[in-house]
Design a protein around this nucleic acid. Structure first.
Lengths: 178, 178
DNA sequence: TAGACCATGTAACAAGTTACATGATTGC
DNA sequence: GCAATCATGTAACTTGTTACATGGTCTA
């Protein structure tokens, strides 16, 4: 299960709470890994039980206490082993493509509308990624070096979205041509 | 659950057995929908129970009997309603990107090797899709019209793979530059 | 004053994965 | 003789989803 590995990777940078990790998945690395807060809390619990993470509790008033998770030596060992292993390419289940594939049963405008909706989602996604890229490019050479690998994954996100949008344009032109 | 909708889409073309559908997912539309044979058999069963599919049994010797599934009128109605609905963009969970993101804990060659492995998987995938495209492009205009929508989804597969490979080249160059 | 944010979870259910099972036929 | 193909499934387990719960603070 790779959500566990994703959590280990993020926590190998610095300790964090489940909530913070959840935000990171949503805003930071969401372009290559999605996870709900429920799954995150569950897996953090499991990772603690096997001893790959440990946590300290920060008492709060009015809110539930914070659990600040930290990777253990055992966790680091597991992470390093995983980083040298073979991983599966992501499995794709793309409902929009299923829809287009079987789209002859509905009028083209129905498809066009839904594709436009996805276009705006992808455009927003791309914009966000480009903003992060701008931020990265403004860093000093030293800091750029530090974030070199995350930046490469960001590049995947950016070119993936761009490629999607180019395709969508082609599809819309084709669908509107009749 | 969209595996159900994928099955309805495929069966709206022509009746088929679970095994045949399984092959279609593996060889035909696998670039946008993955499903195991176990899940397919399970969902076909569920779809029959709610009356969106029906099946006839073809008795065989030596092998288990064939169940030939067919979409019902109720199934067609459900499919048409779904085709006009809003669907979610696919959720991505890309373990290779997690690996690269956290890759500073291992030597670059470890990453390079794994990326090369994925490169060959994607190259093979692209080759298959291009073969299907060649086939499509050799069809008569009438037949091209018929497969116009599936072809648009094929285009997504092709440009997605091409974009992936371009990115991988950039990453390899970057990783080998030190 | 309403909605977003902070911060954590439980419970019920659906979906997906992995391993196992059967057994004949066809091709290398 | 061994692997692949045909053809279907069960069982155990893991993951993911959806709904619900709590309750204070902060901002428009």
């Amino acid at each position: 299960m790779s959500l566990q590995h994703s959590l280990l990777v993020l926590l190998s940078e610095s300790p964090a709470t489940g909530y913070e990790l959840s935000q990171t998945f949503k805003k930071g690395v969401g372009y290559f890994w999605k996870a709900s807060h429920q799954q995150i809390y569950l897996q953090l619990k499991k990772l603690s039980e096997v001893g790959w993470l440990e946590f300290v509790i920060e008492v709060q008033r009015g809110k539930p206490d914070k659990k600040i998770y930290q990777i253990t030596e055992a966790g680091k060992a597991v992470l390093n082993a995983w980083l040298s292993s073979e991983v599966k390419p992501p499995k794709t289940n793309d409902a929009l493509l299923v829809m287009i594939y079987g789209g002859k049963h509905v009028k083209p405008d129905v498809l066009i509308k839904e594709i436009e909706r996805h276009k705006s989602i992808h455009s927003k996604g791309l914009k966000k990624l480009l903003d992060i890229e701008t931020l990265y490019l403004s860093l000093s050479d030293d800091e750029k070096k530090k974030y070199r690998l995350p930046y490469l994954t960001l590049r995947r996100g950016i070119s993936g979205e761009q490629s999607w949008l180019v395709w969508a344009e082609e599809v819309l032109i084709e669908l509107m041509s009749d």
